[in-house]
Computed example of a mutant assay.
Amino acid sequence: MDMHHPFGFEWGDLVAIFTLVGVVATYVNLGISHTAKDSNRAEFEQLTDSIAQLNETMVKVNMVLDSLKADRESTNRRLDKIEATSDRHDIQLARIEEHVMTTRKDNQ
Protein backbone atom coordinates (compact mmCIF):
# COMPACT_ATOMS: atom_id res chain seq x y z
CA MET A 1 0.00 0.00 0.00
CA ASP A 2 1.43 3.27 -1.15
CA MET A 3 1.36 6.12 1.39
CA HIS A 4 0.59 8.65 -1.32
CA HIS A 5 -2.25 6.55 -2.78
CA PRO A 6 -4.15 4.79 0.07
CA PHE A 7 -6.71 2.28 -1.23
CA GLY A 8 -5.67 3.27 -4.71
CA PHE A 9 -7.13 6.78 -4.43
CA GLU A 10 -5.55 10.19 -4.37
CA TRP A 11 -5.85 12.17 -1.16
CA GLY A 12 -8.22 14.61 -2.83
CA ASP A 13 -10.45 11.72 -3.92
CA LEU A 14 -10.54 10.36 -0.36
CA VAL A 15 -11.45 13.79 1.02
CA ALA A 16 -14.23 14.07 -1.57
CA ILE A 17 -15.55 10.57 -0.72
CA PHE A 18 -15.53 11.29 3.03
CA THR A 19 -17.19 14.66 2.42
CA LEU A 20 -19.86 13.01 0.28
CA VAL A 21 -20.44 10.34 2.93
CA GLY A 22 -20.68 13.07 5.60
CA VAL A 23 -23.17 15.10 3.53
CA VAL A 24 -25.33 12.01 2.85
CA ALA A 25 -25.21 11.03 6.55
CA THR A 26 -26.21 14.57 7.55
CA TYR A 27 -29.06 14.58 5.03
CA VAL A 28 -30.31 11.19 6.25
CA ASN A 29 -30.04 12.37 9.86
CA LEU A 30 -32.02 15.53 9.06
CA GLY A 31 -34.67 13.50 7.23
CA ILE A 32 -35.04 11.08 10.12
CA SER A 33 -35.08 13.96 12.62
CA HIS A 34 -37.80 15.86 10.73
CA THR A 35 -39.85 12.67 10.32
CA ALA A 36 -39.53 11.94 14.03
CA LYS A 37 -40.52 15.51 14.95
CA ASP A 38 -43.54 15.39 12.64
CA SER A 39 -44.54 12.02 14.04
CA ASN A 40 -44.14 13.26 17.61
CA ARG A 41 -46.11 16.40 16.81
CA ALA A 42 -48.96 14.33 15.33
CA GLU A 43 -48.93 11.98 18.31
CA PHE A 44 -48.87 14.95 20.70
CA GLU A 45 -51.84 16.54 18.94
CA GLN A 46 -53.69 13.22 19.07
CA LEU A 47 -52.84 12.92 22.76
CA THR A 48 -54.05 16.48 23.36
CA ASP A 49 -57.35 15.67 21.64
CA SER A 50 -57.71 12.49 23.68
CA ILE A 51 -57.06 14.37 26.91
CA ALA A 52 -59.63 17.01 25.95
CA GLN A 53 -62.20 14.28 25.28
CA LEU A 54 -61.31 12.61 28.57
CA ASN A 55 -61.82 15.91 30.39
CA GLU A 56 -65.25 16.33 28.78
CA THR A 57 -66.15 12.78 29.75
CA MET A 58 -64.96 13.34 33.32
CA VAL A 59 -67.11 16.49 33.58
CA LYS A 60 -70.13 14.46 32.45
CA VAL A 61 -69.29 11.65 34.88
CA ASN A 62 -69.00 14.16 37.73
CA MET A 63 -72.38 15.63 36.82
CA VAL A 64 -73.95 12.17 36.82
CA LEU A 65 -72.31 11.33 40.14
CA ASP A 66 -73.59 14.58 41.66
CA SER A 67 -77.07 13.76 40.40
CA LEU A 68 -76.86 10.23 41.81
CA LYS A 69 -75.65 11.60 45.13
CA ALA A 70 -78.59 14.02 45.30
CA ASP A 71 -81.00 11.21 44.39
CA ARG A 72 -79.52 8.97 47.06
CA GLU A 73 -79.77 11.69 49.70
CA SER A 74 -83.41 12.26 48.72
CA THR A 75 -84.08 8.52 48.87
CA ASN A 76 -82.41 8.29 52.27
CA ARG A 77 -84.56 11.15 53.61
CA ARG A 78 -87.70 9.45 52.29
CA LEU A 79 -86.60 6.13 53.79
CA ASP A 80 -85.98 7.78 57.16
CA LYS A 81 -89.50 9.28 57.08
CA ILE A 82 -90.99 5.90 56.13
CA GLU A 83 -89.10 4.18 58.97
CA ALA A 84 -90.28 6.80 61.46
CA THR A 85 -93.87 6.38 60.28
CA SER A 86 -93.55 2.61 60.45
CA ASP A 87 -92.20 2.85 64.01
CA ARG A 88 -95.15 5.06 65.02
CA HIS A 89 -97.58 2.59 63.45
CA ASP A 90 -95.90 -0.31 65.23
CA ILE A 91 -96.26 1.51 68.55
CA GLN A 92 -99.91 2.32 67.83
CA LEU A 93 -100.56 -1.29 66.81
CA ALA A 94 -98.95 -2.54 70.03
CA ARG A 95 -101.14 -0.18 72.07
CA ILE A 96 -104.25 -1.33 70.22
CA GLU A 97 -103.33 -4.99 70.76
CA GLU A 98 -102.70 -4.29 74.45
CA HIS A 99 -106.03 -2.48 74.72
CA VAL A 100 -107.84 -5.36 72.98
CA MET A 101 -106.17 -7.94 75.25
CA THR A 102 -107.05 -6.04 78.41
CA THR A 103 -110.59 -5.52 77.19
CA ARG A 104 -111.01 -9.27 76.52
CA LYS A 105 -109.69 -10.15 79.94
CA ASP A 106 -112.08 -7.68 81.55
CA ASN A 107 -115.04 -9.10 79.60
CA GLN A 108 -114.33 -12.69 80.53
Rank of each mutant, 00 (worst) to 15 (best):
N76W: 01
E83T: 09
F18H: 10
D2F: 05
F44V: 07
R78K: 13
M3A: 14
A70F: 01
K60P: 01
D13C: 03
V15L: 08
V61G: 00
L47A: 15
G8E: 03
D66R: 07
V24Q: 03
H99K: 05
T19C: 09
I32F: 07
V59P: 00
H4G: 09
V100A: 13
D66L: 06
F18E: 10
T26N: 07
N62K: 13
M63D: 15
D38S: 11
M63C: 04
E98N: 11
E73K: 06
T102Q: 15
E73Y: 05
M1I: 10
A42M: 11
T85M: 04
K37S: 08
V64E: 11
S67D: 13
Y27C: 14
P6L: 02
I82L: 14
L30M: 04
P6Y: 02
L54S: 10
D2A: 13
N40L: 12
R95G: 03
V64S: 05
V24M: 05
V59F: 04
V61R: 01
T85Y: 02
T35H: 09
L93G: 04
S74F: 02
M3Q: 10
K69P: 00
K69R: 11
L68R: 08
V24I: 15
N29Q: 12
A16W: 01
T19Q: 13
P6R: 04
I82C: 06
F7I: 04
M101V: 08
T57L: 04
T103R: 02
V15A: 11
E73R: 06
A42K: 14
R95K: 12
A52I: 10
L47W: 07
L68C: 09
Q53H: 13
R88M: 07
I91D: 12
E97Q: 10
L14C: 08
T57F: 03
T26S: 12
V28M: 07
R88I: 01
Q53E: 15
L47V: 13
M63Q: 14
N55V: 08
T19G: 13
N40F: 05
E45I: 13
V24C: 07
T35C: 06
A94G: 06
H34N: 08
I82K: 09
